[in-house]
Amino acid sequence: MNTKNFNRITLTALLLVAVLFPFFADFYILCIGISVLIAALLGQSWNIMSGYAGQFSFGHAVFFGIGAYTSTTLYTMFGVSPWLGMIIGALVAALVGAAIGFLSFRYKLRDDYFALATLAFAEIFRILVNNTSALGGATGILIPYLVKPSEYQFASDKTYYWVILALVAFATVFIAVMSKSKTGLNLVAIKSNQEAAAALGVNVLKYKLIAISSSAFFAALAGTFYAQYYGFIDPSIVFASSISVEAIVPCIIGGSGTLYGPLLGALLIIPLQEICNSLFTSISGINMIIYGVLIVLFIMFCPDGIYGRMTKYISKRKGN
């Protein structure tokens, strides 16, 4: 059996396990499964612009929040189905992403400074929405729960699970196709050295904007899902810096710039968070300390992420 066939069989088996998972999980475990997939989708989204194209974002909450707020306001104010709202939200986020990118790159913000700019934009949006009474202000928006699949509302958490699984699969296929294309090569080239990329005819600004827009698109899909699943959003939840962190951590832990890294990372980090939360209840905050220490240790000893480590190990064993 050659490696390609082996990979295909492993992948099919894992996908099958993921699809059938709700039949074997109780309610609590299923909720964790959904959290894992939300983190995985955010991680994949971050992976495009930061992992592949090397443009660090500390403010992915801005896109997540735009997704959540666009579909939710369209639904509660105008009765637009959140399915359509999800797509509109994703497109709006992509546009906002392009605008943020254009402003930042136009003024030659790079590396840490660009990352800080994204953080600032997320804060600006949080404060704006917080003070806009038409959008519910700080009170947020409660989505009426009507249990209509045509309006992105389901009776069973199993269905929610399959929806988010499909979105994660969509993002992963998108990245798989992109990474092998001209766009993918150009993004990785820009990450390595944008001057050298430009010398080879790569329009650096254009490709950075493609990266940030498609990244924003997927983060917004996660935002709409979040809103529909929990039924309530407010600015301090969906524009929170904790959302931005949730986009970064799975990618860093799993391996940024790799196809499966963020999936692995989410699968590890969310259950770890749950375990920390449930084991250490006696002293408040101790769970966060332990979680933090574990992440620091991880980054110290496995800076390429699990998937990066694995592929390096395999290529070493092949002796190349």
Binding site: S192, N193, A197
Partner: peptide, 8 residues
């Protein structure tokens, strides 16, 4: 200074 794209 040669600038290879190290990830490719």
């Amino acid at each position: 200074i040669a600038k290879p794209f190290g990830d490719l």
